[in-house]
Every structure is written in structure tokens, then in C-alpha cells.
Nucleic acid binder design. Structure first.
Length: 169
DNA sequence: AGCAAGATCGGT
DNA sequence: CCGATCTTGCTG
């Protein structure tokens, strides 16, 4: 067990605090006994049922259930039948939120992130607070955090589409 | 039961 | 710009 692993206190905060705080942090992935490390470089926040870009805007379903759990669990889902999206649930139970990991080190794009970390359905609901195969550790301090609107959510309407909830280095 | 769309990416 | 490829949620 690593001293540097981020605990539940870190993840059980509002997604708009956790998302930018994740930049520069380290993702540790254990696969076949081999440890790999990646620095988080880009994230997006999805916040609550009122956020029309958030999958929880359609309420509590089998798919969104984990977002209603405590922060630190993983919300993963398959998009376009090909790419696994990796999200970390944040906040307290009953307040659906999650951070989409869009970039790692030199890896750009959430589809590539899922691919390089070998993410699949078995990670749904897993907690990075206790998992033995994926967790987050403290990393480097980020000099400047850049902010922009989220990508690929044209369906969410102008208001939510314009929220500056994407953070990157 | 059937169907349309999707928090993407890589190749024309 | 288009196809890949399959799960999900909505409709009937």
C-alpha cells in the first residue's frame, strides 16, 4: 500500500474542486505484475442531474448508478462500441458527479486513455481508494491550469455546452 | 422487440 | 467527412 495514494477525502469533494486538482497527479496501473505510471494532463467535470451533458441528467439507471455512490469509484462505459471512457466519481453519495480523464502524459483523448490503461467493463464501480490494480498518487505541482468548455456534448444545449469545465495543463 | 445515438478516433 | 461496433435508454 502506497503512502502517496490519494484517499477518500480527496475524492469526496465537489467535482469542480477535484477535477483541476487531479491535473499533475499520477495514475498507477498494475497489469500482469507490471507497474505503469501516467500523469493526468486533461480532465472534464460532469456535475449533477441538472447538467444536461452529464449522463445522470437522465436520472438513476443501471448505467449511472455508480455516480450516485461515494467519490473514488470508477465510472466506465463503452462509447461507439469501441472506446472505454474512464471517469472517477466524486463527491458524496446521492450527488451524481464524475471526472472524465481525457489526457495522460503524452496521451491525448479519452479513447486512447482507456486503451493505454486497458480499461474494460470489469472496472465499473471499482474504487481507486482500495483497488490493487489502479489508483491515483500525488504527482507534480502544476504551474498553470488552462480552462475551456467541454468537448463532444453538442446534445447538451448552449448553456451546459458553454460551462468551462474542461481543465488541462 | 426494435431502434437511434453516442463524453471517439483514424483513415479518405 | 465517414465508418467502426455495441451498449443503453426510449418508444411502442
Amino acid at each position: 500500500m502506497s503512502r502517496d495514494r490519494l484517499n477518500s477525502t480527496f475524492f469526496e469533494r465537489d467535482v469542480l474542486e477535484v477535477a483541476p486538482d487531479l491535473l499533475g497527479k499520477t495514475v498507477i496501473r498494475m497489469l500482469d505484475g507490471v507497474r505503469s505510471e501516467w500523469m493526468i494532463s486533461e480532465v472534464e467535470a460532469y456535475r449533477g442531474e441538472e447538467d444536461l451533458a452529464c449522463h445522470a441528467s437522465r436520472g438513476r439507471t443501471k448505467r449511472t448508478e455508480v455516480m450516485y455512490q461515494e467519490g473514488g469509484r470508477l465510472y466506465v462505459y463503452l462509447i461507439y462500441g469501441i472506446y472505454w471512457m474512464l471517469n472517477i466519481v466524486t463527491g458524496k453519495p446521492e450527488y451524481p458527479q464524475a471526472v472524465l480523464i481525457r489526457g495522460l502524459s503524452e496521451i491525448r483523448g479519452p479513447g486512447k486513455v482507456g486503451r493505454v490503461l486497458h480499461i474494460d467493463k470489469s472496472f465499473y464501480g471499482e474504487s481507486v481508494v482500495i483497488s490493487e490494480r489502479i489508483w491515483i498518487e500525488k504527482g507534480i505541482s502544476v504551474p498553470e491550469i488552462k480552462i475551456a468548455d467541454r468537448i463532444g456534448i453538442d446534445y447538451a444545449g448552449e448553456y451546459w455546452k458553454n460551462m468551462k469545465w474542461r481543465f488541462f495543463i
